[in-house]
Nucleic acid binder design. Structure first.
Length: 258
DNA sequence: ATGGCTAACATGGTTAGA
């Protein structure tokens, strides 16, 4: 029996956030960390800088946009990039098996605005992800799907549900797509535990949104039943959002007995 | 009021994020 701590963090440029990443991992030596929006082409990935922090790493990135990486203390096995059968130039998914647990790290498309081409892409992308995860679950009973989902699951995950009503990140089709993901046999482990009211993981850079706690909870850790039942804790760490030049997202952490 | 910040790319203004 050991503890597997999983974390997810949209760093909004790994280059800019490397100092924060080093500080955070020193204080929070999780076993696995899923990063999104690395914004670095594969050939320029700062592998040595990550390894010096004591982690192995697998990455799948591109210039300027998107990009994901998986950091782990233990070896990353059966690394897979993208969604099989869903050709996509945008690099948003990387998966690996760590300590016998399948980890799928996702950066779900933003969707821009309801009805836009990007919104339609987001829904198509989520449908493909559902099929991918459903298939993976048949081979990996212990599976975690974590990352930036760009969907607030419920109104309590939104600072001002009235203002956001019907808009991208909360619209009914997006929430239905998240529901279809959960229906494959996954659970949002954050809600297994008592949490502070108005818990969010993202705050706009503008209008002093962080100081006003005007945020959304869109960064999630979903676990299969076999994994979720052994989840001992889950929390959002707001500390890095208070630093100088922060990411607009905060890390989310969950611990599992495996 | 569709702005407001931040990052990338480029080296000033556009694109994108959420």
């Amino acid at each position: 029996m050991s503890t597997l701590r999983l974390a997810t963090w949209n760093v909004n440029s790994l280059r800019v956030r490397l100092p924060h990443l080093g500080e955070w991992l020193a204080a929070n030596p999780v076993e696995v960390l899923a990063l999104q929006e690395t914004k670095i082409p594969d050939e320029d990935f700062p592998r040595e800088a990550i390894e010096q922090l004591g982690y192995r790493v697998a990455w799948y990135g591109q210039r300027t946009y998107n990009g994901v990486a998986l950091l782990a203390r233990a070896p990353l096995e059966d690394v897979a990039s993208g969604i099989p059968g869903f050709p996509d130039e945008q690099r948003r998914v990387i998966a690996a098996t760590v300590d016998g647990v399948r980890i799928v790290n996702v950066y779900v498309p933003n969707g821009q605005s309801v009805g836009s081409d990007k919104y339609e892409y987001k829904l198509r992308w989520l449908a493909a992800l559902r099929d991918y995860v459903a298939d993976a679950l048949t081979r990996h009973p212990r599976l975690a799907l974590l990352g930036d989902f760009n969907i607030a699951p419920e109104d309590r995950d939104v600072h001002d549900p009235r203002a956001w009503e019907g808009s991208v990140h909360v619209s009914e089709p997006e929430r239905a797509a998240l529901g279809a993901l959960l229906a494959t046999g996954l659970e949002d482990v954050f809600r297994r535990f008592e949490q502070p009211e108005k818990s969010y993981s993202w705050w706009d850079y503008r209008m002093m949104a962080f100081r006003r706690n005007a945020g959304l909870r869109i960064d999630l850790i979903l676990a299969s039943a076999a994994l979720a039942r052994n989840c001992g804790a889950c929390h959002i760490d707001k500390a890095p959002r208070r630093l100088e030049r922060p990411s607009d997202h905060a890390p989310v952490v969950a611990g599992f007995d495996i």
